[in-house]
């Protein structure tokens, strides 16, 4: 059983490595978006400085850009299988499908973001202060942030699997996908850093699953979550990961059963 997941993981990994051109293109694109956003926030800060230092905002922007692929990445093959209904064949395979797709998605997100994040972080660290990425608050902060990032990665894959599970049930998945993607980009802090949302909203938003993906690790990195708060933040991430994992498994099981009842 484990072997099937491993080979699914390895296959995606190899595919990702093939698209080196896309990695370069993606890098340029993401750097460009990052520069635009940083310029915008700098202009906004010039008019009305905030309690949150500009360095924190630019760091937030660059980390979001660097790990963009972790949040939104399209697997054209998977999307295609859903659209054409071929995914029904997969449901007939003698395999715990949830795990199979989890491994696939994990491989894609992991490699997709690693390949892009590394050059991006180097680039952002070279920018002048107030433009680029600042160092982590402390070494322990970096350690918990990395731990948070791993949890975030595990969590985003459970979310993605739920999306796949839902889209499988609808005849035309594009509408649902677009909505879920919007929730993802808005509430994970990609469009606008969650730290710039109205303060009263932030209390609720940071508890939602979307904030567990990148927002929590970024706050750990830059010290907005102090070390003392770290266990709580990591716990929230872990709890959501487990809940979403359970929900996803349930959904996939139901899908599988439904398919058997309908006879394909």
């Amino acid at each position: 059983m484990m072997k099937a997941y491993l080979s699914a993981f390895r296959m995606r990994w190899k595919m990702e490595l093939q698209y080196r051109g896309a990695v370069v293109g993606g890098f340029v694109c993401q750097v460009f978006f990052g520069l635009i956003l940083v310029s915008l926030y700098r202009a906004l800060y010039a008019g009305k400085p905030q309690s949150l230092p500009i360095e924190s905002v630019t760091t937030y922007v660059w980390l979001q850009q660097a790990f963009f692929r972790m949040i939104l990445s399209s697997d054209p093959d998977l999307a295609n299988r859903i659209r054409t209904g071929d995914i029904a064949y997969d449901l007939c395979r003698p395999l715990q499908l949830y795990g199979y797709y989890y491994a696939r998605i994990l491989a894609q997100k992991l490699l997709g973001s690693l390949l892009r994040a590394a050059p991006m972080l180097v680039f952002a660290a070279c920018l002048p202060r107030g433009w680029g990425l600042v160092l982590p608050a402390s070494l322990p902060a970096l350690a918990v942030a990395l731990l948070g990032l791993v949890l975030g990665l595990l969590c985003v894959c459970t979310l993605e699997n739920i999306t796949v599970g839902i889209t499988m049930r609808t005849l035309d998945p594009r509408g649902v996908q677009a909505m879920l993607n919007l929730l993802m980009t808005t509430l994970s802090g990609n469009i606008l850093p969650l730290t710039l949302f109205p303060d009263s909203w932030q209390k609720a938003i940071t508890l939602l699953p979307y904030a567990q993906l990148l927002d929590a690790p970024i706050r750990l990195y830059s010290g907005q979550y102090a070390l003392a708060q770290a266990p709580r933040a990591l716990l929230v991430q872990a709890v959501w990961t487990v809940i979403l994992l359970g929900l996803g498994l349930l959904l996939w099981q139901k899908n599988q059963k439904r398919l058997i009842v309908q006879g394909g």
């Binding site: 202009a43 906004l44 800060y45 010039a46 008019g47 009305k48 905030q50 606008l192 710039l196 949302f197 109205p198």
Partner: peptide
């Protein structure tokens, strides 16, 4: 939301 926090831009 940006307007809510920053009021104006230049």
């Amino acid at each position: 939301l940006i307007v809510d926090r920053f009021d104006h831009l230049n």
